[in-house]
C-alpha cells in the first residue's frame, strides 16, 4: 500500500478495512469474486447476484416457515406409554417453571425472538429496496439487523437438539415431527440470508433512496 497524500483525499474515494483499518481503494469485485484485505486477509466483500431480490424472496419464505417451526411439535418421546412432545417455546417454559428465569430468557431471545425480529427486519428492508420505497427508518433497521446477526442462534439450537436426541435415544424411542423439518428449513434459509446479504450494496441502495426522498420533499 503506497503512502497516500492527505491533500488529494476525498472521503468517498477510499475505504478502510474494518479489522485492521488499512486505508484502501474500494475494491469492486465482480459477481462471484471475493475481495480480501491485503494486510489482514479479511473478506471485505463478496457480491452476490441479485442480492436484494434474493434477500426479499428468502425473507418471505423464512417469515412463513417461522410459524410451523415454532408451533408444530419437533421431537416426541415415549416413556411407559406417556408421550411428551417438545416445541421451541415449551423448552423455554419448562426452564421458567424450574425457576431458571435467566436461562429461560436467554433461550427465548436467541431461539425465538431474535430470529423473528431478524427475519422481519430483513423482510422490511429488502421489501423497501425491492419496491424502491424510501423510509427514514431504513438505516436504523439495517443497523439493528446487522447487530442482531450474531445473536440469532438457530443453528446452535439444532446442534443442541441433535445432542439431546443422542442422549435420549438410549432411554426411550423418539419421534420427529413436522416442526423439526420446518425448523431445519428455516435454518437453511437464515444461513442463505446472512451469507447472501451484500451489506455494501444494501447501504448504497439505502443512501440512494434517502437522497431520492430528500429530493422529492
Amino acid at each position: 500500500m503506497p503512502h497516500l497524500s492527505t491533500k488529494v483525499m476525498n472521503s468517498t474515494n477510499f475505504d478502510a478495512c474494518p479489522e485492521c483499518d488499512l486505508l484502501l481503494k474500494p475494491a469492486q469485485p465482480k459477481i462471484g469474486e471475493k475481495a480480501h484485505c491485503p494486510r489482514c486477509g479479511l473478506l471485505l466483500s463478496r457480491p452476490h447476484k441479485q442480492s436484494v431480490e434474493r434477500t426479499f424472496a428468502l425473507s418471505i419464505a423464512g417469515f412463513i416457515l417461522f410459524f410451523p417451526a415454532n408451533f408444530l411439535p419437533m421431537v416426541g418421546i415415549t416413556v411407559l406409554g406417556n408421550v411428551n412432545t417438545g416445541l421451541l417455546m415449551s423448552g423455554v417454559l419448562a426452564l421458567f417453571n424450574d425457576g431458571m428465569v435467566a436461562v429461560a430468557i436467554v433461550v427465548f431471545l436467541a431461539s425465538v425472538l431474535f430470529p423473528l425480529v431478524h427475519i422481519s427486519l430483513s423482510l422490511l428492508i429488502s421489501g423497501h429496496l425491492y419496491f424502491n420505497r424510501p423510509n427514514r427508518n431504513l438505516a436504523m433497521w439495517m443497523r439493528w439487523m446487522l447487530h442482531l446477526d450474531e445473536w440469532v442462534m438457530l443453528e446452535v439450537y439444532l446442534l443442541g437438539i441433535i445432542v439431546a436426541c443422542v442422549k435420549l435415544m438410549a432411554i426411550a424411542p423418539l419421534k420427529f415431527g413436522w416442526g423439526l423439518y420446518a425448523f431445519i428449513a428455516l435454518i437453511i434459509i437464515t444461513t442463505m440470508l446472512t451469507s447472501g446479504l451484500d451489506s455494501g450494496l444494501f447501504w448504497q441502495r439505502i443512501e440512494q433512496l434517502r437522497k431520492k426522498d430528500n429530493h422529492e420533499c
Binding site: G91, L95, D98, A164
Partner: peptide, 27 residues
Amino acid sequence: GRWSMLDIFMISILVDLVNFGAVQIIA
C-alpha cells in the same frame, strides 16, 4: 463464541422432554 450455547439449548430440550412423574431432568 456463540457455539458454546449448545449446552444451554440441549438442557432446555432435555428439561422439557424428560418430565415424567418418576423421571425428571431439572436444570
